[in-house]
Design a protein around this nucleic acid. Structure first.
Lengths: 218, 218
DNA sequence: GCGGCTGTATCGATCGTTCGTTCGTTCTGG
DNA sequence: CCAGAACGAACGAACGATCGATACAGCCGC
């Protein structure tokens, strides 16, 4: 059947040479790429693992060879992406030093940049994570909670240092995070708005929300 | 079985008297209430119409008697909620008059209040609408787009009148809407934060985002 | 007794998952 | 040096369960 042709064509297009020995992760990556697309299009429950396998030009059992099931596949997808986010967070926060404004700016920049770079996984984490089985979901929720704490601490420190002026730091934190997260929902990768410009604008907006550089009133 | 008792109890708790003749909408409301809960818990694809019927203490055919299927049921749920939102929008905007700041404040207030009052339907509209069949989804998307236009016009008018100062009205609009929408994700109805207080804070945050009452710089 | 309403039974399709098998490569013992 | 056991990788077929949807007969208040 043409399924064979499709399979061969798909594989040769992705990785021509297989290398000498224990090269693994070829089929694994193909499945994860397909899973990213299908989960993004149809959501966690709407996506079938048959569609994912078909998209990867592989059989259903190949998927089960690499992953224990649908839940673990989805979990691996968003955890890979979250690892990337945390790495960038740590790196930029280290560069930002101790200044609360610099730290908040770094957090906003890293978050917006991540929402753009990993747009699809961002949407999955923000919208579909809740449907993942709790044993997979809870550890991820804890990691996200840690990020929330970083935003909160930067804002609280800025208030303590007198550089921020908001009277409702919790609401300001939620507003900052909400507007950064929302970038994944509207950003058009084919548009001409660069990431650097975008991050700069959002740092300004975040500073406005926390009352950076304002008169002591309000 | 106890299913019968549960059914009678559930109905008597909702509407004791059945009225004279062609009173419909009793079982209809029960199904919609159940649908709201199940859709909220499991999402559009994750929710099964059997679970919905069971939650409403009704049979599967009762659901199909009132609604043509899963899609129409979901559509009716969020359209009812959107009607409520638009009614409040029109009313508050009419009271706000022509002042852009008052109009933006009205939009923020109405939106935050709606996200709190109709928290569940808000989340469904924001997160699950995309999975609805296009013939149901598209009209709703157009209505939401109209709201976006209202925010945009208020901000643009404020800029033209010199009362707002932001240099990126599009980003400001997206940030304002994102933070208002996010209220549905964290607000705790059992908490002690009143809606009026909340709306007031978010109006302040929105004004900060658009640069209301700022020096001409920035 | 008629029509609004509900229940049971069932349809075909699709779901996530498991099974047994195959094919090529690598490792190992005589 | 080479037969053959072991292994990694992938396949097609099938499992039981559940999905959305339908058909149809019965109930009950007017």
């Amino acid at each position: 059947m043409d399924a064979t042709r499709g399979k061969v064509a798909g594989k040769s297009a992705k990785a021509a040479d297989n290398g000498p020995s224990g090269l693994r992760g070829n089929g694994r990556d193909a499945i994860m790429d397909a899973a990213r697309d299908v989960f993004a299009e149809r959501g966690y429950f709407g996506a079938s693992i048959r569609d994912i396998a078909k998209r990867a030009d592989m059989s259903l059992s190949a998927l089960y060879y690499y992953y224990s099931g649908k839940a673990e596949l989805f979990h691996a997808l968003i955890e890979d992406s979250l690892d990337d986010y945390f790495r960038h967070c740590e790196k930029e926060l280290a560069q930002a030093g101790d200044d609360p404004a610099a730290r908040l700016a770094a957090l906003v920049t890293v978050t917006v940049d991540y929402r753009v770079r990993r747009r699809v996984e961002s949407l999955l984490t923000l919208q579909e994570l809740r449907y993942l089985e709790p044993e997979y979901r809870n550890p991820i929720i804890e990691r996200r909670h840690a990020v929330s704490g970083l935003f909160q601490k930067a804002i609280d420190d800025g208030l303590a240092g007198g550089v921020f002026r908001t009277r409702h730091p919790d609401d300001a934190r939620r507003a900052v995070m909400a507007m950064c997260n929302a970038v994944a929902q509207w950003y058009d990768p084919s548009g001409d708005l660069g990431t650097a410009q975008l991050c700069d604008r959002y740092v300004r907006l975040a500073f406005a929300l926390v009352g950076h550089g304002e008169a002591p009133a309000r």
